[in-house]
Design a protein around this nucleic acid. Structure first.
Lengths: 214, 214
DNA sequence: TCTCGAATAGGGTGTGGACCTCATGCGGGA
DNA sequence: TCCCGCATGAGGTCCACACCCTATTCGAGA
């Protein structure tokens, strides 16, 4: 559990083996980095974090079993000194700012050049944080980042699952009329005028799990 | 343009640099393979195919500028001897069977183990085709692969864009009533009962572009 | 030739939901 | 203290659409 100044331990978590291979490639070119594990899903990632307390963990946003945000929470709880950096394919402003406010130490797009990833990873290992250039740009010119309340997010999620107002009402133990009201405010905020647009928006903004069923 | 028996040229096309790095890793471990280019979007991929006529091209399904399916068509046209294999993150039965019927030489999930990718790549380079194990399973137990007609696909796409029946009718120059009918048959086929479910289904099945806006 | 499915179009009915206003209770900040 | 925003709830209106029919045209295949 003790680690020397020279050696930094890293766990790579991503459900795509190809991506893990790429990250391994990039990370192993850094001085003093030793990759001690690869996790293919959220639960494995949590287990590795708990057991090995690595210096750093790279985290994919959309993993099966347990999504990235939950993994972040668990790792923070069980291994608070582990630097967590997220490597995501999603470019939606919503999810990116969610990650930032969740307090990750690094945030990268999968489209980042290896050089930038190397640069970022070594800074994070050195103790500072890193926000990838493209992401900084995206977050900067976030026109009107719509702020949704907790309830509105819940309602939105249920709507994208295809539930009717009545069903959502029952699920959340509130009146169907209240669901209707939240929904109206939601659509007004997002500037959409139909369920279809609402669902399309939610899915594009990554408020739902990415497409997978295997 | 002439290539020896021993040397096989490969172009890697993927918008994620990390994935390219991983694929480069895996491919370069194969005997006699030389990677002659990396494309970060569809147009670059087409250009590489045209110019270098590589032995093989690995293709990402969802690239910006020009999607994988279009790239496949162009590569087939300009470089018919190039073996094309698709490496996709999407696990939806619909898109996978689309790829297969489009006649790609290889089909892999990004979650494939490096060993299986190596195996598949070398078979493809040797002249045969390869369908990754997980994909074969997915396609095998495709319960009732819903067959949609061309018109139904068009309608579905417009619906996911948030257009109303009237708007779709105008766009396709048909009667709103016809749109309604197609839509009803569509929902019956897919076993859904609301716009929300319809849109969710379409997006999950990858009938729309993946989430990106950068 | 006859049949079948796809695409087109219309009739009709009932309901879900988009959008409006109004009201209450609660917690936080000025 | 007052006010504002959030969550809750309810009234009502109106249109889109989900779902039920029938019918015609056309091309493919038995």
């Amino acid at each position: 559990m003790h680690r020397s100044e020279a050696e930094r331990t890293v766990v790579i978590a991503d459900d795509h083996a190809v991506v893990r291979s790429g990250l391994r490639n990039i990370l192993s070119s850094l001085q003093g980095v030793r990759i001690i594990g690869e996790a293919a899903n959220g639960l494995e990632a949590i287990a590795y974090g708990k057991r090995y307390q690595p210096s750093m963990m790279t985290l994919d946003a959309g993993m099966p079993m347990c999504n990235g945000m939950e993994v972040l929470g668990e790792v923070r709880r069980w291994s608070p000194r582990t630097r967590v950096c997220v490597v995501t394919g999603f470019t939606s402003v919503g999810s990116l700012s969610d990650w930032r406010s969740a307090g990750v130490d690094g945030l990268f797009l999968k489209s980042s050049e290896p050089a930038e990833l190397r640069e970022g990873f070594s800074r994070i290992l050195a103790g500072s944080t890193y926000l990838q250039h493209d992401i900084r740009c995206l977050l900067d010119d976030r026109q009107q980042v719509v702020e949704l309340t907790l309830r509105e997010r819940q309602i939105l999620h249920q709507v994208t699952l295809g539930l009717s107002n009545a069903e959502i009402a029952e699920k959340l133990s509130i009146s169907p009329k209240t669901v209707d009201n939240h929904r109206s405010r939601l659509m007004a905020k997002l500037g959409v005028h139909s369920v279809a647009q609402l669902v399309a928006y939610a899915l594009k903004e990554g408020l739902l799990e990415p497409a997978r069923q295997a």
